[in-house]
Structure formats: C-alpha cells, structure tokens
C-alpha cells in the first residue's frame, strides 16, 4: 500500500541555520504517528516542510505517491492533508460558525464523513458558542474549533502540532478523547505533543527528533518499555 505521506531526506534551512538534517518520515493510511522531541529540535519545521509552508532545500515530499515537494500549500491541503497548527490559527474576526464552514468540503476521495452536525456533536462546547467571535473563545475552545475546522475539510491525514499546549488538564483530556475518536474514524494522524504518556498511548508508532535528525523510530510500545531512550532524548 502506498504511504499517505512519504518524506525522504528532508533538509530544511531557516536562513543560514540548518534545521532538518535529512529526515525521513512515512505515514500509512489510518496510522497514528507520535512525533516527539524537546523544543527547537525541528518538529514544527518538519511538519511545515511537509505542508509546503516551508520549502525544504533538498529532499522530496510525496502525498499518496505524488511528488508535492514544490506544491503550493493549498494543493497539499486539497490532496487530503489537514493542519492544526501550534498556537491554533483560528480566525478571530470570524464567528465560530464561519470558522467551521469557511473551508468545509468533501475530502480528496469525495467522502463527507465529517459534517457540521457531527463536529458539533463531538464538541458540544462549540455548539454553545456557535455565534460568538473566534477571538472570544478560551484556549481550549479555540483548540476544539481548529480541530473541528480541519475535520470539516474531510482529510485523510490530520496533523496536530502541540494541540494540548497550555491547556488545563481537564480540557486536555477532552482533546485527547476527540483525537481517539478521529483515530477510530480511520483518519491518519501525526501528533506532536509534550505529553509522552498520552502520545505513546494513542500512537501506533513514535519518532523522536534531536537537532533535526531522527534518533528513534519504532512502535510506541518499544518506547514505553525503554525508559533509557526517553531519558536520553526527551528528559522525561
């Protein structure tokens, strides 16, 4: 089976600084990949390189087998890759309802699994706030809004960058619940998060980045069962 996403030998620079040193990443349909590493190790840059938001200097990014290394970000999104960025990226000048429906569409295979009704059922908080401005929401609600908005594009891959960052434990738990629901619905996900326990519990496979290189890649269980890797690379 072809990978949904296959990145090979990605080298990405910000100006003169070399951020990613030949990173490989593959994601199979329906798979959940946990991407970990301390701050500044290149996790977000790797995601942005895949999404076309940052151009890798060398290497290739394939989405469902098609080379999209130089494609515009909207082409990659239309191929079925949805993004929930760090810091959320809601549109504060649009209402909650507008945020949700502005980009809603059938997926790359024509699927309409996620409708406004289903998203509101998954996030009852959003239904209560539907008429509010995006900027009036709490951090947790904004996170739900971004995830709901991404789901309404009916993606095959959902990329979550620090989705629980800065959220209260109760709200975080709510987000993890929905991530499990997304996984169960068959959408492949790449999850970047600091919560080692939560990531390894949900991810099929884990990857650790240190200074722009992959230092660990394997089943989540192996990472859970080997505290030395964790201590060495993550400091948890």
């Amino acid at each position: 089976m072809t990978s949904l996403i296959e990145a090979r030998g990605i080298h990405t620079y910000y100006g003169a600084s070399h951020i990613l040193h030949g990173v490989d990443l593959a994601l199979a349909p329906g798979e959940t990949l946990g991407l970990m590493g301390r701050n500044g190790m290149g996790k977000s840059t790797l995601l942005k390189s895949i999404l076309g938001l940052v151009r890798p200097r060398s290497g290739t990014v394939r989405v469902k087998g098609a080379d999209m290394t130089r494609s515009a970000p909207h082409r990659i999104a239309l191929a079925g890759v949805a993004y929930v960025p760090e810091g959320r990226g809601i549109f504060p000048n649009l209402s909650v309802h507008e945020n949700l429906v502005m980009a809603a569409r059938a997926g790359a295979r024509g699927q309409r699994d996620w409708t406004l009704e289903r998203v509101l059922a998954a996030f009852p908080r959003l239904r209560e706030r539907i008429g509010h401005g995006g900027g009036q929401l709490s951090g947790g609600e904004q996170q739900m809004l971004t995830i709901g908005r991404a789901l309404l594009t009916n993606p095959d891959v959902l990329i979550l960058d620090e989705a629980t960052e800065g959220l209260a434990p109760l709200v975080s738990r709510e987000i993890w619940r929905i991530v499990r629901e997304i996984k169960a619905s068959g959408i492949a996900t790449i999850i970047v998060d600091k919560n080692f326990r939560a990531v390894t519990a949900i991810a099929d496979r884990a990857m650790i980045l240190v200074k722009g290189s992959v230092v660990f890649e394997g089943p989540s269980e192996r990472l859970r069962g080997d505290p030395s890797i964790r201590e060495r690379y993550l400091g948890v």
């Binding site: 970000p73 239309l78 949805a82 960025p85």
Partner: peptide, 8 residues
Amino acid sequence: EMVQSLGI
C-alpha cells in the same frame, strides 16, 4: 498561511 493550509 492558515487559509492556504485549509485548501484555499
């Protein structure tokens, strides 16, 4: 950037 990443 976000608008582009939503496929627009």
